[in-house]
């Protein structure tokens, strides 16, 4: 029986400026077990980054506010902790790495200083010991000659090396959960694979669970056990990697899958994209948020918001139509496309 690490219930995050309220996250729920990896995928603006940042209560307040929901981390409700108790969790039990390693390290301090700071914030050890530990961490994340490198500034590192430093900072206190917000997006393709490999290897060593925020389903297939597909602040589909990969149910997930680069696709063909853009989150959306862009939308989609329905074991989808008819439609659609291509 896997042990539960994190349970998010009905998380709602709003950004208020003047008279407009933007509902960036609108009722997200999921659970994560120890040593498990979950991927949160969606377009930019889908609320995936805000969800991740809210877990550490790091959204800027004001204008942001977590207006509703619960976040249970090992039975502690993070939203009820004092600021001091929350700080003891950050970087210690839950760590985070960010998208752009060129801006997430402080340019005016050496990387050593930044790793040691993280260690000494949570562990009462001497500077010397902390430095030894920092060197060990740099070695673990694959930085050559760490004794020398520890005294260098971030701008003296390449992009991939900086992300390795970020990982070293994040794992320095042996956290139980690592939140990675698009950790490979800003990197070269060749470096991306190295960083993902590194994260997987270190996960085995540190027994860390990972929340992987990404818009790249390829990353999810490679690293995750579970997937959460987000659209306009809502979870539209969730399930295991196998379920989402082999049997996607939501039209938005189909769109995401179709826009992935796969080997079978002829490179001369432009990748299909989902037409239209996400709704304005400062407006109240009646009905399904994806309806306006959904090729299968019916009248009901515009008037009634669909419930989350379990279609198979632990596979949930938020759509009015989970019948085989719809999937047949999809098959037909793919055939149509194949014909056009041919």
């Amino acid at each position: 029986m896997p042990e539960e690490l994190l349970r998010v219930e009905n998380l709602q995050v709003e950004f208020r400026s003047g008279l407009t309220t933007t509902k960036a996250v609108n009722g997200v729920s999921f659970t994560l077990n120890k040593k498990e990896n979950i991927g949160i995928v969606g377009e930019s603006g889908s609320g995936k980054s805000v969800t991740a940042t809210s877990l550490l209560r790091l959204i800027p307040e004001p204008p942001g506010i977590i207006s509703d929901g619960n976040i249970f981390f090992e039975e502690k409700d993070l939203l009820k902790l004092s600021k001091k108790e929350m700080r003891a969790i950050r970087g210690n039990e839950i760590s985070m790495i960010f998208q752009d390693p060129s801006t997430s390290l402080n340019p005016v301090y050496t990387v050593g200083n930044q790793i040691i700071e993280s260690i000494r914030t949570h562990e009462k050890i001497s500077k010397k010991e902390a430095k030894q530990k920092a060197i060990k961490m740099l070695e673990l994340v694959g930085i050559p000659s760490p004794e020398k490198r520890i005294n260098m500034y971030p701008h003296e590192f390449s992009g991939g090396m900086r992300q390795r430093v970020m990982i070293a900072i994040a794992l320095a206190c042996n956290p139980k959960l690592l939140i990675a917000d698009e950790p490979t997006t800003a990197l070269d393709v060749t470096v991306q694979a190295q960083i993902l490999d590194l994260m997987k290897n270190l996960q085995d060593e540190f027994n860390t669970a990972i929340i992987m925020i990404t818009h790249d389903l390829g990353v999810v297939w490679e690293t995750c056990d579970k997937v959460l597909v987000m659209y306009a602040g809502n979870v539209v589909e969730s399930g295991t990697v196998e379920q989402i990969h082999d049997n996607p149910m939501h039209p938005y997930t189909w769109g995401l899958l179709d826009s992935q680069i796969t080997e079978s696709v002829n490179n001369d063909e432009p990748l299909p994209t989902i037409p239209g853009s996400p709704p304005d989150l400062s407006q109240e959306v009646r009905g399904c948020p994806f309806a306006a862009r959904c090729p299968f939308a019916q009248d009901i989609c515009f008037s009634k918001k669909p419930e989350m329905v379990e279609t198979e074991d632990n596979h949930y989808v938020s759509c009015h139509f989970q019948t085989k008819d719809k999937r047949l439609d999809r098959k037909e659609q793919q055939n149509d496309r194949a014909i056009v291509k041919g």
């Binding site: 790091l58 801006t103 997430s104 914030t121």
Partner: peptide, 11 residues
């Protein structure tokens, strides 16, 4: 971002 990083470290 690096200010956010510092906060995420629990500083």
């Amino acid at each position: 971002d690096y200010v956010k990083t510092a906060r995420s470290k629990g500083v």
